[in-house]
Amino acid sequence: MSTHAIHSRDEALAGGLAFAMHVLFLVLLVFGVSWQHKQVDTAVIVDLWRDLPAAAPPKIEAPTPPPPPPEVKPEPPKPVPKVEAKPPPKPEPAPAPKPDIALKEKQEKERQLKAQQEAEAKKKLAAEKAREAELEKKKRAEAEVLKQKLAAEAEATRVAAEQQKARDALAAQQAAAQAKVVDEYKRRISEKIRRLIVLPPNVPDNAQVEFRVIVLPGGAILDAPKLLRSVGSVPAYDAAVERAIIQADPLPLPPDPALMRHFRELNLVFRPKD
């Protein structure tokens, strides 16, 4: 081979290898970066697993019922070897007395026949027994499987009930937390208004006014507050509270818009003493 041929072959090989090298680089780069992205995604998923462990046990218990059948199966073969083992010893003694007289031989033959018949009868009996035993065992195994199924079902219902309980408890907790937040914001609203009340003179301590306010989602007050119960003796106090309510616009509302329904219509009660 001349140097030229070798050189051109080398050049082609080198070009191909260089190209392959760059394809490899590119693949590594792309896959390396996308792999990192996948990791970030899994980190987000983690939170969702918190409630699931309670649901896992029934799944693990469900596959357990199958094992019992293998435990039952190895037993039936036992009676079969017993049946086979019994007949051989009986024919064996027969050949020994052969040299005796013909009568004896006949008797012997009869005896042998009898023995054989007996042995066959025994075999049949044993086989029947074995069959019966197998049937019984099958029945027992079926009963066991049924029992286990029932148990598994009971377990599943129990677990479901527990989960339901847990869910109810969670819902109750959430409701309690919501109620807390609602109370907190109601307190803040009345406090904000109370700070703005300019108390007129001569208001009796037991005076009590009640206003109904319609609140918009932003916390703005729709229309003028409606007077539900007036003090009667001191109309100046009613006017002072109404002014304070109008000044308090916008009212403080919780950031969660789901709680807005608790604040749509507010009945506010004010006493000069609080």
């Binding site: 050049e11 090989l13 080198a14 260089a18 760059h22």
Partner: peptide, 16 residues
């Protein structure tokens, strides 16, 4: 990229 391609080409050529 071009420089890298050529440098790898020469690397393999030189190795041979």
């Amino acid at each position: 990229l071009l420089a890298s391609l050529f440098s790898w080409y020469y690397i393999f050529l030189k190795v041979f």
